[in-house]
């Protein structure tokens, strides 16, 4: 579903992402973890096509994001770390705008808005202007907008930040449901307990380089993900070749 090969992104002399290679298959929830400034958001922005990269290739469902960006974008949805939405619209107008752009029919969008807004308990607030929403409400709206066109792949940057426990639980259910239907999820998080319980596969990035990846069992073994992550973080870069 998503193939990242030898991705390299530089900001001036600084290498933000260094020769990163990852493959995410349909049906997988893939967690992406790393310290602040490790290169997670840069990778995610390159995947969703809003950041040009220097080297490598990103393919979504077999299509190159560089060569066929529009076709790729039709297949994915993106939720950024900070849900900055169009504050000047109401929630429902925003959802209709997104549905219009993705060509979701009137009946389908009505059904999906009803389903997800009810699920996330946002229905009553849909007529409110977005600037009156709390952070969590904006996050919920961004989630509904991401699900509205039934994408094959959803890419999320810290999706659980700002969500209340119930909404977090529902989001995890929605993620699993999408993957059970053959879709895929690629998301970054700092909440390692969530990643450990939810993800089928995980990748750990440090200073732009992938230092460990694989199924949850392969990465953590008998230990916890938190222990493995902290251990890898403390290890000098030269020692990692053994992993």
């Amino acid at each position: 579903m998503l193939s990242i090969s030898h991705l390299t992104k530089k900001y001036g002399d600084k290498v933000a992402v260094d020769d990163l290679t990852l493959t995410i298959n349909g049906g997988e929830i893939y967690g992406f973890i790393g310290h602040n400034g490790a290169g997670k958001t840069t990778t995610i922005k390159a995947v969703v096509g809003i950041l040009a990269f220097d080297d490598g290739e990103i393919k979504i469902d077999g299509l190159s994001i560089k060569d066929q960006p529009l076709e790729c974008k039709r297949k994915i949805a993106y939720i950024p770390d900070n849900p900055d939405l169009f504050d000047y619209m109401s929630g429902i107008k925003y959802l209709n705008f997104i549905a219009d752009v993705y060509g979701v029919s009137a009946s389908d969008r009505q059904e999906r808005i009803r389903k997800y807004a009810d699920l996330l308990e946002l229905t009553d607030d849909l007529a409110q202007p977005i600037n009156a929403y709390s952070h969590g409400m904006k996050q919920k709206l961004a989630i509904i907008a991401a699900w509205i066109h039934q994408p094959k792949l959803i890419i999320m940057d810290e999706p659980f930040v700002g969500l209340d426990p119930k909404a977090s639980h529902l989001l995890k259910q929605m993620m699993r449901e999408l993957c059970d239907q053959g879709g895929a999820i690629f998301f970054s998080t700092h909440v390692l307990e969530v990643a450990e319980k939810l993800c089928d596969k995980v990748a750990i990035i440090k200073n732009g380089k992938l230092i460990k990846s694989g199924t949850m069992e392969e990465v953590k073994g008998d230990s916890s993900l938190e222990n493995v992550f902290l251990e890898l973080e403390e290890k000098p870069e030269d020692d990692r070749s053994e992993d």
Binding site: S105, A106, R114
Partner: peptide
């Protein structure tokens, strides 16, 4: 303003 569902238009 409480949201009241209307027929969606594309």
């Amino acid at each position: 303003i409480k949201y009241r569902e209307k027929e969606a238009k594309s």
